[in-house]
Design a protein around this nucleic acid. Structure first.
Length: 276
DNA sequence: CTCCAGGTGATGG
DNA sequence: CCATCACATGGA
């Protein structure tokens, strides 16, 4: 089916945006795959406003539409960022087509626990190894992605030995993952019910997990619970704020602006045009 | 080899 | 409250 967006969508930028790690480019040009909560989608970029989603309209409407935040018009935000000038304007310009995805709370929790002090390629590698312990994804072979698995459930994660966990490259985060699995599997952290809490209470719930600080909690709140006023402050966003302290002032949904700025800062951090 | 990565918890002031 | 420091490991 063809999906039309109110403004723009860019599958390639989204796949590279650092908010999702279970995704990739396919062999055919302009084709990408995304895996979330056990659902697998392959899609083709048609033009800046349309993609061809290789799924039935039922699952698009019930899952992927919300996943891609497909009802939101990002143009007003990008206009405000353009008016700010500087980094904000450049980020809004260059990031056109980025969207903040709505993903699974458990998958975001363990993904961003793993993410700390790792590069994005290293995060992907580690999560892929962890996923070797998870269930096979239905339709993966048909989509040309044989062997694709999703991340293990809390119960499955608990059944792994620390050696197995360490062999995935989790390092010192292995104990954090174990604690997250323990709390979710044991019902001490109910991720579905947590969605009804206000921001402050939700953050406190998430931070009860060992290895979850403000930054990881913000990532889960933004990428899983759609709390668009949260701004995960990693090294790149701190550099943006240092150079442009008012980058987020007066912005209605700063979490969305954060995604453009993160994308821009990371892309230009190494080529001399941003840092220093 | 060195340096850094979508940070956090423990410790000491 | 804030400033350091260790932490495991892959990727550049």
């Amino acid at each position: 089916m063809i999906a039309a967006f109110p403004d723009e969508i860019d599958l390639k930028k989204i796949a590279e945006s650092g908010q999702i790690f279970s995704c990739g480019q396919m062999e055919e040009p302009d084709h990408f795959w995304f895996l979330s909560a056990g659902n697998l989608l392959t899609a083709r970029q048609i033009d800046p406003q349309h993609i061809e989603a290789f799924c039935e309209s039922g699952i698009w409407d019930s899952f992927w539409s919300a996943f891609f935040d497909a009802e939101r018009d990002y143009r007003p935000l990008r206009q405000v960022m353009r008016e700010k000038g500087g980094i904000s304007a450049a980020a809004a310009q260059e990031g056109a087509g980025l969207r903040v995805l709505r993903q699974d709370p458990w998958e975001m929790l363990i993904s961003f626990i793993v993410s700390q002090r790792k590069s994005i390629p290293a995060i992907r590698t580690c999560l892929a190894k962890l996923s070797d312990f998870g269930p096979i994804v239905p339709g993966a072979v048909c989509a040309g992605l044989p062997g694709l698995r999703r991340l293990p459930s809390p119960d499955r994660l608990l059944s792994l030995t620390s050696q197995q966990l360490l062999a995935c490259g989790t390092g010192y985060r292995a104990a954090y993952l174990h604690d997250a699995a323990l709390k979710v599997a044991g019902g001490k952290l109910n991720l579905a019910a947590a969605g009804k809490l206000d921001d402050e209470a939700l953050q406190a719930e998430l931070m009860n997990v060992k290895g979850v600080g403000v930054k990881v909690a913000d990532c889960v709140m933004l990428f899983a619970y759609g709390r668009t006023d949260r701004v995960p402050a990693d090294v790149w966003i701190r550099r943006v704020k240092e150079r442009c302290p008012d980058a987020f002032t007066g912005i209605a949904a700063p979490g969305l602006a954060q995604q453009y700025l993160f994308f821009y800062a990371r892309r230009h951090g190494r080529d001399g045009s941003f840092v220093q």
